[in-house]
Amino acid sequence: MQAKEIKEQIQVLIEQASLLDPNLARRLDEINRWVKNLKPGSLMAKPFVLAFLLEVITDSTIWLLIKSLPSPEAQQAKFEQMTPNERYWYGYLFPKWINASDSKFYIWKQKLMAGEFNQVDDDIIRAIAQDITSRDGSFWQRYIADLSMATDLIVSNRHQQPLCIQVTSVCQELHHQKYQAWENTLRSWEIKRGLFLSYNPQNANFVNQLVNVALYNSDYLAGGKYLNFS
């Protein structure tokens, strides 16, 4: 999708959302005002901004489709067609983001626009995701989850219970501080359980270990628990 098409699609979604979900319309209008003065060439030169916009367009389109269904039963039937991670995203976290006050949104929009979004652990997260898939687990990734909800991956395994995970190589001195901030963020979004995974890149087997922990805890970590695994 080209920059002009992206801007046009956001406008279309704002019009649809104004009838079906005014809070989504306000969110999209905020995003529209953020990018409307960017020329197409400038927008295409900002890959993280583009990726975020495409995600928001996809999520908003699916959400409005659900909202347009004629009954709660029809909506529930649509959710039942989704994977557990999709159902958790569209049935819980994405609408929560639409309706809640997101104190981090203003900050990370600026960082995306300035090209300051630094995915330090991106290769590790990708390796973890690939390993999860190879073991018949599943994962979900969203910029909103990452930047507002401190969640790099949403993972589910055999029991189909999505688990929010953050992956970090933070140094020991800052570990507790970052863990506490992560837990506070999950609680503020009413995410019922989570896994904070710290790794040592010197350990050749750390990806395998992290995936073992992620898949096990997806199935068995109790609600109200925010596990710190190092």
Results as ranks from 00 to 15, higher is better:
P47F: 04
L50H: 05
A51K: 12
L53V: 06
L54C: 13
E55Y: 06
E55M: 07
V56D: 10
T58W: 10
T58V: 08
S60D: 03
T61C: 03
L65G: 06
L65K: 08
K67W: 00
L69A: 01
P72N: 04
E73L: 09
E73S: 07
A74Y: 00
A74S: 11
Q76S: 08
Q76M: 09
A77W: 04
K78W: 13
F79P: 04
Q81W: 10
M82N: 03
P84H: 01
N85H: 08
R87K: 15
Y88D: 06
W89F: 15
W89G: 03
G91I: 01
K96G: 11
K96T: 13
I98W: 03
I98F: 06
A100K: 06
A100L: 10
D102A: 04
D102E: 08
K104C: 11
Y106G: 08
I107G: 09
I107P: 06
W108A: 03
Q110L: 11
Q110E: 13
L112P: 06
Q119V: 09
Q119W: 12
Q119M: 12
V120E: 11
I124L: 09
I124P: 02
A127K: 07
I128P: 08
Q130A: 13
D131A: 14
I132Y: 03
S134I: 10
S134H: 14
S134E: 15
D136Y: 11
D136R: 13
D136P: 05
F139N: 09
F139L: 05
F139I: 09
W140E: 15
W140V: 05
Y143K: 06
I144S: 09
D146G: 05
D146M: 07
D146H: 11
D146R: 07
S148C: 12
S148V: 05
S148G: 06
M149C: 14
M149I: 07
M149Y: 07
A150F: 15
A150L: 11
A150V: 07
I154G: 04
I154K: 00
